[in-house]
């Protein structure tokens, strides 16, 4: 399988403190990984750095072989989608359809194609019936599904999700992870999901990564099985 994401020797400092101390990671096409760790261990920093939202001191990040620090990455940025921890809650008249369509904001396509892509993404995430609703009126689970729809419209092949299960109850967490698993298979999408504890994702057989003291301290498949290459 081709590498979608390659991170090598990544070092990041925030507010004078070295948060990531040399991360090496490779995710292949269609692979899904859960990155867990204690609060403040650098999970979000890592995700935001990979998304190109934070500067890094040393190392290299490539998506589909393109260095995200290079000029040529600008035109390919849409191949990566990021869903942040923060949930929009201000009462502002943004509809679900408009929210999902922001994934296509930089694309020069016809209005018809735009509508078809947004509606397909909303249908695939079970949000089509919500399309006329205000985004701020949705529940936590519905908002996460709309954010996922936005990423699908975008046509991203790498999905970075920062604690998407935080605002969900147990059933909601289960439903959302099953939805992600279905989307991963259907779209052959690569997923890197950050969470406090990987117990929340007990219903999927994803790769488990653990970050501690700025380094990846664990890298295994679910159920303590070592990664395929390490067997």
């Amino acid at each position: 399988m081709n590498s979608v994401l390659t991170v090598s020797g990544l070092k990041v400092s925030r507010q004078g403190r070295r948060v990531l101390q040399g991360i090496d990671l490779e995710l292949k096409a269609g692979e899904a990984a859960v990155l867990s760790g204690l609060n403040g261990c650098g999970k979000t920093t890592m995700l935001r750095t990979v998304a190109g939202l934070l500067d890094y001191e040393a190392g290299r990040i490539t998506v589909h072989g393109t260095d995200i620090a290079s000029v040529s990455w600008k035109g390919r940025r849409h191949s990566l989608a990021y869903v942040s921890q923060e949930q929009e809650s201000r009462a502002f008249p943004v509809r679900v359809y408009e929210m999902a369509a922001t994934g296509l904001a930089a694309r020069k396509i016809t209005a018809r194609e735009r509508r078809e892509r947004v509606e397909k993404a909303l249908a695939d995430t079970g949000c089509l019936e919500l399309k006329e609703r205000y985004y701020f009126s949705l529940s936590g689970g519905e908002r996460q599904r709309v954010a996922l729809a936005r990423c699908l419209c975008q046509g991203a092949s790498l999905l970075l999700l920062d604690e998407p299960l935080t605002y969900l109850d147990r059933d909601g967490r289960r439903a959302f992870t099953l939805l992600l698993e279905r989307i991963r298979k259907e779209y052959a999408i690569t997923i890197l999901l950050v969470t406090h504890t990987d117990d929340e994702l007990s219903n999927v057989d994803w790769r488990r990564l653990r970050l501690s003291e700025g380094r990846l301290s664990e890298d295994r498949l679910k159920g303590n099985m070592p990664k395929e290459e390490e067997r």
Partner: peptide, 17 residues
């Protein structure tokens, strides 16, 4: 479209290109 994407979510707009 770009303005509304930035108004809705700056980070998501950035990663959307």
């Amino acid at each position: 479209r770009q303005i509304t994407a930035v108004l809705i979510n700056r980070e998501a707009a950035y990663t959307a290109g």
